[in-house]
Design a protein around this nucleic acid. Structure first.
Length: 574
RNA sequence: CGGAGAGUGGCGCAGUUUGGUAGCGCGCGUGGUUUGGGACCACGAGGUCGAAGGUUCAAAUCCUUUCUCUCCGACCA
């Protein structure tokens, strides 16, 4: 492919509205163009990467006997109402009506529709299990689209659904898809972690999130190097060890502390570490009932855990008549107190006195305060004991690239999807669902594969395998030479981009670095001696190679790379 | 939805405080000189300054309303 014929424009400067590296590089390298917040055009270069990923996904799923189909995007309201998600999904769903006011939505996910599809076509246990998937555009009215293609209103997802006669078969299917997921992410070159996850509104019994490690990710998770335990921060349990401190109780004191409000301020005022402070946060539910939530000053309230314990939707209370900055779980108070297991172990601690400019010193549980509910409401921190093996755990950030769920009959029951078992009895079909954010995956790869000059594509997903830079494109012999290398490489199944633009060499080098094609060949002044220059995008290695050998040299390196990327271990959990 | 910031040729920005009818760099076009790390010279095209309304002899600039975008938070397979 000739660069001069390609619809591709690069940008020298960083677009003002792009914050994270992958977003900046995708825009600068001409992969995507923003049309509106969270809505992007995929330009030819970006589409090539997307297609590579789709091919990898199809390939691995077909190995597990999955069938590709295509569900509609315009979805009738009825099945959504039957499962309760027409309301439950809320504002995130794009809803619309046709000319006769029939209700529809733009598919945010497809559990209901695939179940409608399968219903009555799968009739007997002999028809099960079944695995069907699609690679389809999804629509979600995100409150805040972000980070380019990472969080969009419109995005491409691979969604797979499995249908089973019994639980054993469902779990076997789930395991098979996990294998496929490992293979897919590995082939994309990603370092990733499968972690225990919260199943959210999608329902069902358990689920795993696949997280690609990255600083821009919105998922926080923990991982234990010793035993391999991993879970999202919402799920990973935290429990204080049941050891009684031998510290003797000191007398309660009220201390005047004007303008000492934050944990840091309190900590330095009293010369104590934050884990001796009772952090008291005010929450309220939808009925305006307030709650005092107590954790150690060194801990963060984990709202997902909190909501799970209270079994109510709570929001942080930012305005109240209480003396913010001087809150404490001190009786008498009319609010229920919810305390973390670590917080109640604090002896001789510090807390707000529930009046302006005053703190209490030497506060201890039982003697000075009690909680109405004690439970796990804090997030695990770096170095905390692993919930499984008690060795220190690590907290990491990442991007959710896939999510799998065991759904059981969450959808098949309300949608009355049944089959006949061997004894002739009618039973409800069991179901699993498995998603991969395909467009997000492109960003995840770039987050892990870039340097200060641009993208550094892994060979498996690169838009082109090889770029040939012709420094003197007006010389038709040089173009001919490039064409012959291209031909030879294409015979091996590789894609080649020839930069034949009549521009100064510097521009070509810079663009090549930005676009990030892994193997680059420079045709320049060495050509009359029959020599070309080879450059590797990743390690910046440069060497001269005889023109006659270059194609086979690149072929060898690519073969090796593609082989390696399929076989190396990319998670710490295997 | 709460908080913060930004909208000026394709891209990045200055000009707004103190109103006088729009400028710089890159890119783009033509011609020429260059040709191994974003070259140089000359000429040229391209903007109702996000939109609407108002104040004024005069508005990118002041006032009002509104739209869009970005970031932090809330929210979220």
């Amino acid at each position: 492919m000739l660069y001069s014929k390609m619809y591709l424009t690069t940008l020298k400067e960083i677009p003002q509205d792009a914050e994270v590296p992958s977003h900046q590089l995708m825009v600068r390298s001409g992969m995507i163009k923003k049309i509106s917040a969270g809505v992007y055009t995929w330009l030819p270069l970006g589409l090539r990467v997307l297609d590579k990923i789709r091919t990898i996904i199809r390939d691995e799923l077909h190995k597990k006997d999955c069938n590709e189909l295509m569900l509609p995007i315009l979805l009738p309201a009825k099945p959504w109402k039957q499962t309760g998600r027409w309301e439950e999904y809320g504002q995130e769903m794009f809803k619309l009506q046709d000319r006769s006011n029939r209700e529809f939505c733009l598919g945010p996910t497809h559990e209901e529709i695939v179940t409608e599809t399968v219903k009555n076509t799968v009739r007997s246990y002999r028809d099960l299990p079944q695995f069907v998937y699609q690679i389809q555009t999804k629509f979600r009215d995100e409150p805040r689209p972000r980070f380019g293609v990472i969080r969009c209103k419109e995005f491409i997802m691979k969604d797979l659904y499995s249908f089973h006669a019994d639980e054993e078969c469902l779990h076997k299917g789930y395991a098979a898809i996990s294998e496929a997921y490992h293979a897919i992410f590995r082939r994309c070159g990603l370092t990733f972690f499968p972690v225990d996850a919260d199943n959210g509104t999608i329902g069902g019994s358990f689920s795993h999130e696949y997280v690609s490690e990255s600083s821009v990710g919105e998922t926080e998770f923990v991982i234990c190097d010793s035993c391999g335990y991993s879970a999202t921060i919402e799920v990973a349990p935290s429990k204080a060890p049941e050891t009684e401190s031998s510290e003797s109780l000191l007398g309660l004191e009220e201390v005047s502390t004007p303008n000492v409000k934050t944990i840091e301020e309190v900590s330095s005022f009293f010369h104590v570490s934050p884990d001796k402070i009772l952090k008291t946060v005010l929450y309220k539910d939808e009925n305006n009932q307030h709650y005092l939530v107590v954790v150690r000053g060194s801990d963060e309230v984990n709202e997902t855990k909190l909501k799970r314990i209270v079994k109510k939707d709570l929001v942080l209370c930012t305005q109240s008549t209480l003396p913010t900055g001087y809150l404490g779980p001190i009786q008498p108070t009319s609010f229920p107190i919810i305390a973390d297991t670590y917080a109640i172990q604090i002896k001789n601690g510090i807390c707000g006195a529930m009046k302006e400019d005053k703190h209490l010193k030497n506060v201890s549980y039982d003697r000075d305060w009690t909680a109405d509910t004690i439970g796990d409401i804090r997030s695990l921190c770096n170095g905390d004991p692993c919930p499984r093996c008690k060795k220190p755990i690590a907290v990491k950030h990442g991007m959710e690239i896939g999510h799998t769920f065991v759904l059981n009959d969450r959808y098949t029951k309300p949608l009355e999807t049944v089959f006949t078992d061997p004894s002739g009895a009618t039973k409800t079909v069991l179901m699993g669902c498995y998603g991969i954010g395909v467009t997000r995956l492109v960003a995840a790869i770039i987050e892990q594969y870039h340097d200060d000059k641009g993208i550094v594509w892994p060979a498996s997903v690169t838009p082109f395998h090889v770029e040939i830079m012709v420094l003197n494109p007006t010389d038709t012999d040089h173009i001919q030479c490039a064409r012959s290398i291209e031909q030879e490489l294409e015979k091996q199944g590789y894609e080649v981009l020839i930069d034949d633009r009549d521009l100064s060499p510097g521009i070509k080098f810079k663009d090549a670095e930005l676009i990030g094609i892994p193997h680059q060949i420079v045709l320049g002044r060495g050509l009359k001696e029959g020599v070309v220059e080879y450059q590797n995008r990743q390690d910046r290695e440069k060497k001269n190679i005889p023109f006659d050998d270059i194609a086979s040299y690149v072929n060898e390196r690519l073969k090796e790379e593609l082989h390696d990327i399929c076989n190396r271990s990319n998670t710490g959990l295997q």
